[in-house]
Nucleic acid binder design. Structure first.
Lengths: 340, 340
DNA sequence: CTTGACATCCGAAACGTTTTGGATTATAAT
DNA sequence: ATTATAATCCAAAACGTTTCGGATGTCAAG
């Protein structure tokens, strides 16, 4: 229905070549004809066929983002923020964003093969990097452009942005220690995620520095969902010996912790202090508002995207590895340790 | 880097035509050669170039979803659920999902023109339909396949799924009325959204049926964010005369209501009852857990997507207009009206 | 031996764009 | 008047796939 270059050319009695070059702004077409072409294209409502462009130019002008989803649905605000950031930045720079979801595992690398080898996208964004991440190995091996949110323990060189999770968790521990807490539990994320182990390591280090003892049974592993935080907390508060504070590896689990404790009649901020990690928008509206380690997810998403686009445009990055320092946002979910 | 049909053909001493037809499963290629081709393609890691396929077949095998975002970031879990549902269903049926964001307004229709006329996508998903929605007008006019989440007040025939917002809000009012509430405030969404006015209409009707008076100054319009719910609530609780219950047009605003009231020391569920709409995953983990009208966003997203794909495959839909009945999930944010 | 019917394969065109390597014309320099 | 130079245009090839309309060979029936 919309016209093709051929139609415009016919109408103006020009060749397809000239119309194409006129629209692309080449200097070898007369200014007067260029204006005629632009005007006609405008009037006729010309929109280029991207399939043809892509075939010819061998680039898709699109970036891919494969969400590593566990279970069919993901409702983690972490991902919304990411998609918003990536989508806005990509759109601003004229790139399409192609979204897919695939659970980690067998079919995952096949999905990456599809997206990359089919020339659907020119580059990819990777998030939630894992230990010995097969996705990173694949992309580096095939020399496919990508930028990650999260570093790697592989000895591979690739661009990424990451937040210092060791330091962030240390802030949480120090905050609680200053409030007099000595019995602190830690709800970790899945062990295969790189940031999980870093944050847990930060916890261990900071506890040692504060001369606090970490109790083995107070370190539990969840899956980053509210329900997991909820379930683990019931388990945690089951025995006679309670921690007075809980640090969760992300806000969603922290919300689960608060809900579970409150269901048991425990006052958050007085009887039990809770700290999260992420500072998702809802953290400020939780009850009580959640003390948490802030990382600028939206901004990281735009950073990662614009880095990728720089790479795609053939530029070299000034900084290939960016580490951001998080900061602690103190709200009302933490308070002085209860006296015994 | 990956091989093209030409390479496979050369290796097997066949024509490109035969290789193509073999892989596509045409019956006019011998079973034995078909197997040779499939095997070679497998070994050589063949992945078709989608740009070429799209150009030739005049279809993109992709669907588009343009998020009508207000402000640069959207962190509404409503959209995450939608993206998850659309993405999973599209992926399952072999379709790509192309995501863009554009604020309602001038540039919006231009974006739709781009997506549709450029053959980037074969069909579109529309959400948050508006009064006299220009997007619907554009798509219908250009005869472009789409399915909407939300009906229309235009006299246009197009397929959609919607949730009966009048009925849903009625449930909320009746629930509060049974609890003895007589002074109920309503926080609406933007007036140009179709569901906003329907829900507000449901509120008005139900209030009348219950012989309750709606106070003009207790009907406020927000923008569906927590912060808007927060701000409006401070305004609402400012005067000497308070409502005993608030119904919000969505959960996010309801969360803002609770946070604002609690900051004033008001007990939610006792002194003030709050009802939301959506039943986002966090509603159950709010404090107190939020009473809300449940609509199955994820399932609607998959329904809408599979309807669109049916249309794209040339099938006619059994039901072009599906209305779903929501139900009320009672949690602890509502309770008996306080005595005077 | 001829004919027809199948089974199997393939050349060439087409999709819509960009790019390459001229071709043509006008202009300026000699 | 001739030649070099610049300005402007365009035909054809190419990107990788699918499809159309045969071409070729085989085999059974007549």
């Amino acid at each position: 229905m919309p016209p093709r270059l051929k139609e415009i050319a016919a109408r103006l009695d020009l060749s397809v070549t000239t119309v194409s070059r006129a629209l692309a702004g080449y200097p070898d077409v007369a200014e007067k004809t260029r204006q005629r072409v632009v005007q006609a294209a405008q009037e006729m409502g010309y929109v280029p066929n991207v399939a043809a462009q892509r075939l010819q130019q061998k680039r898709a002008n699109a970036i891919g983002f494969i969400i590593p989803t566990f279970g069919p649905r993901f409702s983690d605000p972490f991902f919304s923020e990411l998609i918003a950031g990536i989508g806005n930045e990509a759109g601003r720079q004229g790139y399409d964003l192609l979204i897919s979801t695939v659970p980690p595992g067998e079919r995952e690398i096949e999905m990456y093969r599809q997206q990359t080898f089919s020339h659907r996208v020119d580059g990819m964004i990777l998030v939630r990097t894992r230990h010995q991440d097969p996705r990173i190995a694949f992309l580096v091996e095939n020399n496919f452009p990508f930028v990650a949110f999260g570093g790697s323990d592989q000895n591979l060189d690739f661009p990424f942005v990451d937040v210092d999770g060791v330091y962030g968790t240390r802030l949480a521990v120090e905050h609680l220690a200053h409030l007099g807490h000595r019995h602190i539990a830690y709800l970790s994320g899945p062990d295969n995620l790189l940031f999980s182990t870093l944050r847990r390591q930060g916890f261990a280090e900071a506890m040692a520095d504060q001369d606090l003892i970490v109790e083995k049974q107070w370190i539990l592993e969840g899956d980053l969902t509210e329900s997991s935080g909820h379930a683990l907390t019931k388990q945690l508060l089951n025995g006679t010996d309670h921690p007075t504070a809980v640090i969760a590896a992300n806000d969603l689990m922290a919300m689960g912790v608060m809900a579970a404790a409150q269901a048991l009649g425990i006052q958050i901020g007085q009887e039990l202090s809770v700290v999260g990690f992420d500072d998702i928008p809802l953290a400020a509206y939780a009850n009580p508002p959640l003390t948490t380690v802030h990382q600028p997810i939206y901004r990281i998403a735009t950073m990662v995207t614009s880095m990728l686009i720089q790479v795609l445009n053939g530029h070299t990055l000034a900084e290939r590895k960016k580490w951001l320092q998080p900061n602690l946002v103190v709200r009302q979910s933490t308070g002085p340790a209860p006296a015994f």
